[in-house]
Design a protein around this nucleic acid. Structure first.
Lengths: 258, 258
DNA sequence: CTAATAGTGTCTGTAAGACAGTATTAT
DNA sequence: ATAATACTGTCTTACAGACACTATTAG
């Protein structure tokens, strides 16, 4: 490894930015047990008013990657720094951006990641941090803000990425408990992709009984091999399911799954 | 923009590497007009024997991006330098990699792109360049080689990316003439994704008559509004089609397209 | 009882997949 | 005629989408 000064101009750093998404529940006041509303949120941080660039602006959390770590490690480090979350969170790389002028500090590309964090992992966020500095925003609200740098574009890219992965992969499980009801799965998908709308009985039948989707999800069973249920969303208990280990392939040229 | 020396250690450069894919045709010797065999090829360059790192190894083409260009511009510049191709080629970013030790020259991440180039654009490749330095390899052959750096992994990633996009988007058009026959479309898909196998009459019918795929491809029409045909693949003329402007959305949770 | 969600059943039209058979062209 | 590809038709089963209906629970 060379430690000499580089012969050519080199980048002034390689920051990693993360769009941290979560789904928050909001129970409706009611005398009856009913399904909570859910909303897609993104975590933003407010830049210090003494920042060199974009002081006081809301921005995606991020930080410089180092020579002795991979980019993914830098992203996990950053996630922990901002949210204190150090668990089974999936972080995926979305893209790397650079154009002259995107950062007034110089030649500063940025590697964009997204993290899908379960709501319960963020419980102490509000307690730990000053809401003036770190906050969850409903996604539509975040899109309205004028964010630092090109973070409006990055946030849009991250959202498009999560939406498309939500439909094409089993990404929904990142927002769900291990064992979930069909209704909860449906609700997560719809929270992330509002255009997704189906008759729930049909949704359930297609998911469970069609040949091409066998092995996508399966019944959650207790020790005795009996199907487990929950009554967390309704008085009538509902059956629990888990994602199986099947990641389907998908195609526009035939029936979709193969 | 600061031109001062950076206060911290910074990357030693931000190279862009490109997996340049093409499909080459290989006519079978025959007395009759018949469909050519097609093969997926990738372009590799041989590193100079006086290179600091991996001398004499085959590698993905690449080069340093600069402060005054976007990463995509750097990728196009690199494509032109290696192949002299400066046309309507689609280049897509796949991922950015870094881990300590991936490049003996130092802190050297790499932004991986792929380019899908039509065979005809590469006609003068053989003429222009020394085949000892730049060559198209059949993809299976390239995967067998011990490439420079982590380029074996990068090539695998690029191939997986192209295969999945081939099934999920209209990427096939990058390898096809504007007007193509159903059989040619089928052949391109199958060349890139060998596991794709269908009865061609069914393939055609599903593509043309199912509701969810309306607007994916449409008949190529001449000035008089009559369907165009070609006899380039067979004595019997075949109808020509073009991709329409519809990019379908795709889902594992319902019938696939929406 | 009510309110809420869970779940079943049925019907119709469309799509998928298997496969047989016919059509068109240059040589 | 022959060899190749192009195209058409048919039949069966699977799936999608619409929608009406019943079931279960706490209060």
């Amino acid at each position: 490894m060379t430690n000499e000064a580089p012969k050519y101009r080199t980048p002034d750093g390689l920051p990693v930015d993360i769009a941290i998404f979560t789904i928050t529940s909001h129970a409706k006041p009611s005398n009856y047990k009913m399904l909570a509303d859910r909303r897609l949120d993104v975590l933003l941080i407010r830049r210090s008013t003494s920042s060199e660039a974009y002081p006081g602006y809301w921005a995606l959390p991020g930080g410089f990657s180092g020579e002795e770590e991979t980019l993914l490690e830098a992203a996990y480090r950053e996630l922990k720094e901002e949210t204190n979350v150090d668990r089974d969170v999936v972080i995926e790389q979305i893209k790397t951006v650079y154009d002259p002028g995107r950062d007034p500090r110089g030649w500063m590309p940025s590697v964009l990641y997204c993290a899908l964090v379960k709501e319960e992992y963020l419980l102490d966020l509000a307690a730990d941090t000053d809401a003036d500095e770190v906050r969850l925003f409903p996604i539509e609200e975040a899109l309205q803000l004028k964010l630092a740098f090109d973070h409006n574009v990055l946030l849009q890219d991250a959202l498009a990425y999560v939406r498309s992965k939500m439909m094409m992969t089993t990404l929904a499980k990142q927002f769900l408990p291990t064992e979930f009801t069909i209704r909860e799965l449906y609700q997560v998908i719809q929270t992330v992709v509002p255009t997704f709308e189906e008759d729930i009985p049909n949704f359930k039948r297609n998911l469970l009984t069609t040949k091409t989707r066998q092995g996508l999800i399966k019944e959650a069973l207790d020790r005795d091999g009996k199907p487990k249920t929950t009554d967390r969303n309704s008085n009538r208990p509902a059956q629990l399911y888990v994602y199986a280990d099947y990641e389907p392939n998908i195609s526009i040229y035939n029936s979709g799954l193969f």
